[in-house]
């Protein structure tokens, strides 16, 4: 399993949001750090095929990002997670399961499992509009995991989660990452410090840092601040 991003570029009229980014990811957890506006969300959207690049390619085991086969292996939690207020959490997951190609019985079983994993059993049949921010975020994580993705893209996944939920989320991701590529974007360093195997740092649309955590000698927070200041200077 290999995600290959090659010279990926996204240019708007007079702004380059992502500038010739290249990397190759193998199964494991990748923490993508960067300040707001660094190009993380644009990069993730392109990896998920919901935003077309101006240049470059994205392939997963040789399959192009625009193909149905690529999407079949993808799980995505966007930064701003939308829902249907009239649907219950259960309805929402069953709908997404249908979109992801799960058969009805399989979908029911998977939804039951995930609802339990994200601790939404008690509110599963209630309308999503009654959910708290944290519950919605957990529902978003559940939908991303529905099809047991080979590539899981999470954009600011811990936003709105309380400390206990963050721990539970980390465990869930660690379990999932054993056989898949998890790309986790955040601007909160502590979110990735404990879970990510490899750290990627973006700034001004460019990938300025890529290293396994084991090879990073200083504290991640310190490294991040140093890189930020260096660039400012």
């Amino acid at each position: 399993m290999e995600l290959k991003v090659d010279r990926l570029t996204k240019q708007y009229k007079n702004k380059i949001a992502v500038d010739r980014v290249s990397f190759t990811l193998k199964p494991g957890i990748y923490g993508l750090l960067g300040e707001n506006g660094a190009g993380k969300t644009t990069l993730m959207r392109m990896i998920c095929g919901v935003l077309g690049p101006s240049g470059g390619t994205i392939t997963l085991d040789g399959m192009d990002v625009s193909t149905e086969e690529y999407r079949a292996m993808l799980g995505y939690l966007p930064q701003e997670f939308g829902y249907y207020p009239g649907f219950s959490g259960w309805d929402f997951l069953m709908y997404l399961a249908a979109l992801k190609g799960l058969q009805k019985d399989e979908a029911k079983e998977r939804c039951r499992q995930l609802i339990e994993q994200v601790s939404l059993q008690e509110v599963a049949k209630k309308k999503i509009k009654t959910y708290s921010g944290g519950m919605k975020q957990r529902l978003g994580i559940a939908q991303a995991l529905l099809n047991q993705p080979k590539l899981l893209v999470l954009d600011e996944p811990t936003a709105g989660l309380d400390p206990r939920e963050r721990i539970r989320f980390r465990k869930l991701i660690e379990q999932t990452a054993q056989s898949c590529i998890v790309l986790l974007s955040t601007h909160i360093v502590s979110d990735v410090e404990q879970t990510a195997d490899t750290i990627l740092i973006m700034k001004g649309g460019q990938l300025i840092f890529e290293k396994p955590q084991t090879e990073i000698s200083e504290a991640l927070e310190k490294l991040y601040m140093r890189m930020f200041e260096e660039k400012m200077g």
């Binding site: 959207r45 998920c48 095929g49 919901v50 149905e68 999407r71 079949a72 993808l74 995505y76 966007p78 701003e80 997670f81 939308g82 829902y83 249907y84 997404l96 249908a98 979109l99 992801k100 190609g101 978003g140 939908q143 099809n147």
Partner: peptide, 14 residues
């Protein structure tokens, strides 16, 4: 509602 991002990247979302 910003559900477009979620549905468009699913297998049968197009």
């Amino acid at each position: 509602r910003r559900t477009d991002q979620v549905i468009l990247c699913t297998r049968y979302g197009k």
